[in-house]
Design a protein around this nucleic acid. Structure first.
Lengths: 102, 102
DNA sequence: CAGTTATATAACCTGTCTGGCATGTTGGCC
DNA sequence: GGCCAACATGCCAGACAGGTTATATAACTG
């Protein structure tokens, strides 16, 4: 469910990791440099992200390359679905208003 | 920013409140009954949601009617934007694959 | 096999968050 | 004005999350 996913993505550091991985997949050291944080802290966040399926890792020599997985983001998108009519209805009203007032 | 909004919406109880308010605006007592939780707990969550702009309240006699506000959900939708190409690209590849293998 | 690189895990501390109970506060009613 | 109803707020206890340092593991390297 998007339930757990939201909690995982709510953490600012983890979102920074996602922002970084959105540009290109990376090893841990690269993320550590980008985030200016201790390596264990980054590894812990990566663990959480991986357990939630937000990222996946593949070993390359001693490195582990992390990349984003689309699934959880799609879930989040789907969860947001019903809430979209909160503002799509407003847009409908705006359109009708403009139609009636040319 | 969507930053704080995500943390606010990550809380399961608060999401249940949002789910309830999505159907219809309600007073606190109604939410208390729906969530089977103590009234102070609900009021506190409503405070957090209101501070984040996720809900707004309007007084009606001694009641306070709460309703959802679209803003934060739009922010979340916007934040999700760049991540959408994670799976839209996959769909592109799938389409090309199907085009090339009729 | 010894040493080094790259990452994961363990132990610990601290701050924050959530829930409950008790107590304010505000608006209507007799 | 006194009382009740509907919420809000303060305070406390328990749980949990995130960071750091120290240590373990895995894979190359000579």
């Amino acid at each position: 469910m998007a339930l757990d996913t939201m909690a995982v993505l709510a953490e600012p550091t983890r979102r920074r990791i996602c922002d970084a991985l959105r540009l290109r997949e990376s090893g841990v050291a690269e993320l550590v440099a980008a985030l200016r944080m201790s390596q264990p802290a980054v590894s812990k966040h990566l663990r959480v992200l991986r357990d939630a399926g937000v990222v996946s890792s593949r070993p390359v020599a001693q490195q582990r390359i992390y990349r984003l997985e689309p699934g959880p983001f799609q879930e989040l998108d789907a969860w947001l679905g019903p809430y979209r009519e909160l503002w799509s209805h407003s847009l409908d009203r705006l359109e009708r208003h403009l139609d009636n007032n040319p």
